[in-house]
Simulated scan of single mutants.
Amino acid sequence: MSLITPSQNQQGGPKKGGARRAENNRLYGHSLPITFEKSHSWTSHILGLFGVSGTRMLNPHCTGIFDPHSRSVWVIDSKDAMIMWRRGFFGKGDLSRSEPSWRTRQISAGRAAAGKHMTAEEIREKRRAERKQFKLDRAAAIAQAAAEAEAAFTEGREAKSSVVIPSGATWRPQQLVTEESPSLSPIPDEERTVEFDEDSVPDLEHLQLTLQEAFFLAWSLDCLTIIDPTTSESMSLKQIWTAFQQIHGSTYIPGVVSEIYANRFDSPFMVNYAAYHYYRSLGWIIKGGIKFCVDLLLYKRGPVFHHAEFAIVIIPVYEDPEDQETSPFDLANSQPFSWTWLSTVNRVNSQVQKTLILTYVTIPARSRVSQELLSSPACLAHYSVREVVLRRFIPARMRD
């Protein structure tokens, strides 16, 4: 039983800006690529009288290409990529920070160059320049008012200052032309004749899925077809299962099962997938957590709605110590780590208001479980997941 479920915390972490909340709910309202549509026909109404649901499942059936060099699956089709991202936030754009928006940003930059509008970066720099100018104007007005008050006090007369100190509500920026931001000046109408062709911008970006995300989509949801890059044919579930395990070997050869890495329950893919499937099945949105020195980040609804509330560190635990001694894999966090490291990671995540969770994945002993189970995902039932929640004590915040 998990210590955390999305339903137990209705807040879901600090909310992001609410200006586009309704639009985000429309675009990213589905947590999985598979959706359900309720029919309103007379046939479904009659079936409903007999207890038969008229709801049908809509499966997008997306396609990805297995790339052994990057240990990922590439979704090339832009339509499939947007389905994967908007319905569950799977993967990331290889030319973007998260959502595959490279082409959109290039079109925006092209329009800005043609004089139609400013890019988001230019708007940001314009606002920064305006804030800087406001602080300078306010400081100058305060200094002038102080000088007039001091002069009036010296002369022994009543201080009546004519200086108006600007405030954030009444101050309006003047024309800002600086050496650092020459593009902020307005473009004359006679120079706005350049037409920008959006069709000339190629779509060079693809969505990159991790092996855990790809297998979850292919096996658990059956909405992703993975193509073998060598044969250009769709891979069977057994081929995907074998290839994803063998990819972590030092000498990976497509289609060849190495005896060194065969019959092993401690494959990095299997250990990480056990934790990934565990949290996905509980309804969490999962993204990589390398930015915060952890393995996974858990979102209640997704990055566009809330910040991640939990940070996960996956710790493999061998049921049989002999399996660890004979293992060809060097699993991360399999060795005891120092309290200095643990305190460092906990402090980093506490500063960004994330709760650190140590997720212990117990690897079944080879002597207890039949090796035939490794040929299918049925062996995942023998893995167990335990959680330890760590919270950093902060006296200034926890007095109540």
Rank of each mutant, 00 (worst) to 15 (best):
S350C: 12
L342W: 04
T225C: 05
E195A: 10
T242W: 14
W341F: 12
L58D: 06
I187D: 05
R347G: 00
T63V: 15
K291G: 06
E130L: 04
A146L: 08
F329R: 01
T251A: 10
L136E: 13
A22M: 03
L49Q: 12
R21W: 00
S384N: 13
V257R: 10
Y279G: 01
E205V: 08
V361D: 13
I76G: 09
T43E: 09
V163D: 02
L356M: 09
F50V: 07
G115Q: 04
A120Q: 09
S96P: 07
E122R: 04
G302V: 04
I123Y: 11
Y299W: 03
E23K: 01
E180Y: 01
Q10E: 15
V345Q: 06
K126M: 08
D295P: 04
L342N: 04
T340A: 06
A112L: 06
Y28I: 11
I394N: 13
G168D: 00
T154K: 13
L207E: 05
R280S: 15
A22T: 12
L297G: 08
S258T: 06
L373K: 05
D222L: 10
R280C: 12
T210R: 13
L204N: 02
K354F: 04
E325M: 09
L358R: 09
D323C: 02
I226G: 03
A396Q: 09
D197C: 13
F196M: 01
H306I: 00
P100S: 01
K116L: 10
T231Y: 08
E122K: 07
L204Y: 02
G51Q: 09
R157M: 07
A243P: 02
I240S: 10
M398Q: 14
S185R: 07
A169T: 02
T210Q: 06
R124P: 05
L176V: 09
T242N: 04
F66C: 11
T326W: 11
D228F: 09
H40V: 13
P303V: 01
Y276E: 00
S96H: 03
T154I: 14
K15I: 03
D80N: 13
Q133M: 15
R128V: 10
G110Q: 03
D197K: 15
I314W: 05
T154S: 04
